[in-house]
Design a protein around this nucleic acid. Structure first.
Lengths: 247, 247
DNA sequence: ACCTGAACACCGTTCAAGT
DNA sequence: ACCTGAACACCGTTCAAGT
C-alpha cells in the first residue's frame, strides 16, 4: 500500500474524516449549541469536537463573532421561502410562524440573535423580503417602516417570554419546583401574578406554571399586531394623522 | 495619633474609602457598565475599581449571576411608581415609558434583562403591579394573561431594534459609515430595505440611517398594542371567542 | 466578619512555525 | 494552503489562610 494516504481513514487530525471547511465548522457549532447550549460553543470545545486544534478553525472563520453570524445565517436559510400569490397578511403570518418553528428547533438562536448587530447578507435578505410583503400589499413606505419596528423581534418568531428558559442549556437538570409553602407565600406577596399565572385555578387540578401555551400566546400577540396594521392600512394612515387608531 | 485607624483614609485596601457593602458593589458595577459596557463588568475589573482583591466581592454577592440580578433590581427601583387614580391605559402607558427612560440611561440593561431568568423579588413586584393595572381596569384574568404576553419585553421599555447598537460599549468608536458605492450596491441588492430605511428620500437631504426616531417608533407600537387591548376588553373578549379582533 | 493569595480550569486570539 | 504548538492576557471561582 502507498504510505501516508488512506482514502477513508484519518489523514491529518485524529477523527478528522476529511478536510475542514466553513460548512462543516458551522454545522458542528450548531450541533454543539443544540446539545449543550450556546455557552458550550467555545472555539476550543468546537475544535475538540472536530478533532482538530483550536487554531485550525481560524482558517474558516475569522473569529468567534463571525462564527455566531454564520450560525444565524444557517438558521435564516431554514426559514420557509415566501409562498407566492398570498395576500400580505397571510404571507407575513406564515413567514413569522415559520421563523418561529426554526427558532424552537434551536432555542439558543434567540439569545444569539439578540447579541448580533445582524447585518449579514442573509439577514438583510430576510428583512428585505419581509418588507417586500407589506409593500406588495400596498403599504406606504412610511407605514411599512413603522410596522417593521412594531414587529421587532417578533419578525424572528420570538419575543421575550415572561418567565424565560432560553438561557438554560438543554442538558441541564429541570428547574426545581417550589414547594407548597413558598408557593403560598409568593401568591400572598404577588396576588396579581398569582391570579394570571394559575390559569385554571377554579376548575382544574392545580396546574402551576406550565398551564400556558406559549405558541398560542405568540399567535395572540401576532394577530393583534396584524389586525392593527390592517386597520391603519385600510384607513390610509399617514404621519399627518398621528393617532395610531380611532381613539 | 492612634495607630492603624484613620477616619477618612484607607483602612485596608488602597483607595477603598470605607468598608465594602452590597450597595457599593452594585453601584460600582452599574457605573462600570454605563462607562464601558456590560462586557467590561468582570469580577476582576470591578474589584480593581473598588480597590480590592477579586475574592472580596464574594462576601457581598454570591456569584456573577447574582451581581447581574442585583444590577437589574437597582434599575427596577428607578422606574417611577404608579400614579394613583389613573385609568388603566394611562397608567400602563406611563409605566412602560418610564421603564424606557430608565433603560435609555443604562443601555446595557437590555442585554442583561434578556439573559436573566428574572424572578427576583423586585422584578416580580414590578410585574405584579403592572398586572394589577389591567385587573383594576376590569380586565379578566385570562385577558390580562394574554395581554402581558403580548407586551413581552415592551413592558421593560424595549423591543429588539431592527439595527441594533445595544451590544456596543459606549466608549467604542462610532460605527464606520459606508461609502456611497457600497451604499448603492446595498440598495440594489435590498430595494425594500432601501425604500424604508431612507425615509425622506424625495424631499430632503439624503438622511441615511439616522432619520429614524426610535422613541416615536416605540410609542407607535405601544399605542397599537394598547388600542388592541382596549378593543378586546370593550368587546368582553373570552377564550370562547378566539378571534383576536373583528376579521 | 471581612479581606487576601495562590491556584485551577477555563476563555479568545497572536505569532512563528511545521507539512 | 492548511494545520500545529506554545504563549499571552484574560475569565469565574474554590480553598486555605490571614487579620
Amino acid at each position: 500500500m502507498t504510505p501516508q494516504t488512506q482514502p477513508d481513514g484519518p489523514t491529518q487530525g485524529r477523527p478528522g474524516r476529511e478536510r475542514l471547511n466553513r460548512e462543516r465548522v458551522l454545522r458542528a457549532a450548531i450541533e454543539l449549541a443544540d446539545e449543550h447550549g450556546v455557552d458550550a460553543v467555545s472555539m476550543r470545545r468546537l475544535a475538540e469536537r472536530l478533532g482538530v486544534v483550536p487554531m485550525a478553525l481560524y482558517k474558516h472563520v475569522a473569529n468567534k463573532d463571525e462564527l455566531l453570524d454564520g450560525m444565524v445565517d444557517a438558521l435564516v436559510g431554514e426559514i420557509a421561502p415566501a409562498a407566492p400569490g398570498a395576500d400580505w397578511r397571510t404571507a407575513v403570518r406564515a413567514r413569522v410562524l415559520s421563523a418561529r418553528t426554526v427558532l424552537l428547533r434551536h432555542p439558543w438562536a434567540r439569545r444569539v440573535l439578540e447579541t448580533r448587530t445582524h447585518r449579514t447578507f442573509a439577514v438583510l435578505g430576510y428583512m428585505d423580503s419581509t418588507i417586500g410583503m407589506f409593500r406588495a400589499g400596498g403599504f406606504s413606505d412610511e407605514l411599512t417602516h413603522h410596522v417593521m419596528h412594531a414587529l421587532g423581534s417578533r419578525m424572528w418568531g420570538f419575543t421575550q417570554e415572561l418567565f424565560d428558559d432560553a438561557g438554560r442549556p438543554p442538558d441541564a437538570p429541570p428547574a426545581p419546583v417550589p414547594d407548597e409553602a413558598t408557593l403560598r407565600a409568593l401568591a400572598a406577596a404577588f396576588p396579581n401574578v398569582a391570579a394570571i399565572a394559575l390559569p385554571a385555578e377554579h376548575d382544574g387540578g392545580t396546574v402551576v406554571g406550565s398551564g400556558c401555551d406559549d405558541q398560542a400566546e405568540f399567535e395572540f400577540a401576532l394577530d393583534l399586531m396584524l389586525d392593527g396594521f390592517a386597520r391603519l392600512h385600510e384607513r390610509g394612515w399617514t404621519r399627518a394623522d398621528p393617532a395610531t387608531a380611532e381613539r
